[in-house]
Structures are given as structure tokens and as C-alpha cells.
Computed example of a mutant assay.
Amino acid sequence: MKGKLRPVGSPVPFPRISERQELPWAALYHTEFMGSGTEALSLAVAIAIRRHSQVSTPEVIIPAYGCPDLVSAIIAQGAKPVLVDLLPNGPHMNDVGVRGATTPSTVAVVGVGFLGIPERLEELSGICREHNLLLIEDSAQCFPPASASKPHADLVVLSFGRGKPINLMGGGALLVRTDLAGQAEEAVAQYPVSVLKVGMKWLIKRLLFNLLMRRLPYYVLERMPLLGIGETSFHRLDTISRLDLPESVLQAGLRDFQRRPLIHQRYDTELAGLEAWGWKCLASDRSEMSRNDPQQPVPLLRYPVLAPSKDMRDRALAVLNSEGIGASAFYGRTLPQIEGVEAAVGGRDYPVASDFASRLLTLPTHEGVTSADVTLIGRILFSVAES
């Protein structure tokens, strides 16, 4: 097949007027739409800081492996990001490390969902309750958020940008647990409201965006070095605003997500036996989240696999991409190793997170992935594993 299968991202749905469905978290959380997921996280940090107004230099705990936007959102509020290493062979923060990083200056802990795999929010919630901290669930990569059914988090962050579970070409949301909504009003009200207009400009942008996600256009785009497709970089957050999001746009996103195929289940079958060669399929031991039924799984954003070594991961990436499969190392390194981040977090080493970053391989799970793609991917990974 000509072109290249993109690593992530679903087309932007057309906003039709139809039957309205209730938001999965409506009974537990108040929803505040924001300009982006990063802005939503920054507002969550602002709420935590106001709750601990006596702290002169507030600190927020985050994982050492993650998106640099975590750091951007925190420093935009004048707070200090405090990094914690991971548990071995997975994306979850080490709870012992979280306890050790907690100080009188800590105001919040951010539990970050990973490609559809939620953080261990119950454990983190227990730590936060002990120390009177707010727990923020960053569910930018997970939908619905884990707290929609069990409200362990005080605040929940969603993102509607490209490459996220619901792609609306931008925007995000902060969910505030109903018992905290009154306390959060002052922090929320300080930010202006921008309006998303679904006019001709938006519709043309949508058509162009969806066109460029196809295999041949994506193949061409990826080879334009100035665009930096797929690169992980640090950008400061300069503006924060709330968003007046048309209900038709959000409802279209919800409907589109619910109809998405469960590609990760095909990988589960195709890659069965790979772990005998020292690989680890991280999706195999994830907690299944639900749309409405606790027994009904939801799509993964990407399918994450840990190779036995960096060398084997890199060889698999090279072969997959040469065969037209948009496999990725994702962030590729820990937060302190990303240019521009070290000044905010320090240069300390996080050995478990570094090992995780060096061996992680992610595979596409969007609706453009065919059975033939999954078969090809399986054949390549087993070939590399056996070599």
C-alpha cells in the first residue's frame, strides 16, 4: 500500500444536530471547557494553589516520563514541577516515590493516564487525602476518564486536540468534582472566554485536516523537516482562556468515539506469544474502562509495547517505518532530557523512567488500521524478536 499509516489520530467528525447524550461524568463533575488540555491542567494547578494560599513556592508532583506540556502548565502558574520515577516495566508513578516527594509545599499530585491506560488513582488518592492535597487526573490520553465512574480525582483534565481520543482540532476541558465547584469559581472566573465558531473557515480546516491524515498526504508531510511531525518539544504556555464550545461539536466527537473499532484487541491476538521473547504488551494488563457497561472495553489511543532492549526497539521501529507503518518511540526520553525542560525540573536522573523511555514502542490503533496492517506488524515484531 502506498503512503504511510499515521501513528495516531482520528478524523474530525462533522457536527450534526442529533439526539443529545449526557456526558459520562455529568453526575459527579462540573465541566469547564478550555482552550486546550494544557490550559485545563494549568487551571487545575491554579485551583490547587488557591486552596493552599499559605504556600509561598507551591510544588506539583508529576511523573518523570511524560509530555512536556505537564511542565508548561505548572510553571505558567508560578509553581514548581517535582518529578517522581516510575514503577518498573510500566507507565505508573512509584507510590513510594510520591510519598517521598511530598513536602509542606506540595499542593497537588497529577496522575497521568497513558495511551488509554489510567493511572492508579485509588493509591494516589489515598496519599493525597493523607496530606490534604488535590489529586488531578490528567486524562488527555484516556477517554472516558477513570474518575467518571469512580471519582477518586478532585479535578480531571481532558484534551480535544489532534492525536487525542476525541479530536476536535483543539480545546479541552477541566472537570471539577461537584463538592469543590464552589471553591474553584474564583480561579475559573479570572480567565476570559473565547468562542469556537463552526463556520466556513472551521469546516474547510476540518476537510483539509482529515485529508492530510490519509496515507499518501501523511507520507509527504512527514518528510517536510520544518513541520517537525512527531517531534516532542517544550513550549511555554503564554495564554489561558475558557472556551465556548458548541454542543454539536462535542456531541459529534462523543458519537464518533463510541463507534471506533477496538484495534487493540486485534493486536492482543496477533502479538500473543511475543512476551516469550522478552517483550511486554502493556495493554494486556490494563484495567478495562467502559463506555456505559463496566464489561465493555474502550479503544486505546496507541498500542504500547516494551522491547527487551533499546537496540531491539530501535531495530523494530526502523523496519516498521520502512514498511509504511507509523510506529513511534513516543516521547523518546524522560522530561529532564527534553530540551528546555531541565531548567524547570533539574537534571536529576530517573533510571526506571529512562529505561522505560528507551524500550517503549507504540503502534497505531485508529480506524485507519486494517487487518493486513496488524498482520504485517506482527510479522515484523516476531522477526525482530527472533533475530
Rank of each mutant, 00 (worst) to 15 (best):
S159I: 04
N210V: 04
L207D: 06
R215W: 06
K205P: 13
R177Y: 01
S233W: 09
R162Q: 13
P217M: 14
E222C: 07
L168Q: 04
I240K: 04
F143R: 03
L262I: 08
L174A: 00
L212C: 12
S194P: 09
L133T: 08
I204P: 13
A153Q: 07
L158H: 06
A140D: 02
E222M: 01
P144Y: 10
L180H: 07
S194A: 13
L216V: 15
G163V: 15
H235F: 15
M224N: 10
R242S: 03
Y191P: 03
L174D: 00
L243H: 14
P165I: 00
R206I: 01
K150N: 12
E137P: 06
L250G: 08
G172V: 07
A140E: 09
Q258H: 13
L207I: 06
M200T: 15
K205L: 12
Q183S: 10
R242E: 03
E231S: 06
D179R: 11
V156Y: 01
G163E: 10
P225K: 08
D256V: 04
A184Y: 07
S194T: 11
P145V: 02
D256T: 15
V198M: 14
E137L: 04
A187K: 13
F143H: 09
A153C: 00
L243Y: 08
E137I: 02
I204K: 14
V220L: 10
K164D: 07
G171V: 06
V193A: 10
A187F: 15
E185P: 05
L203P: 11
A189N: 03
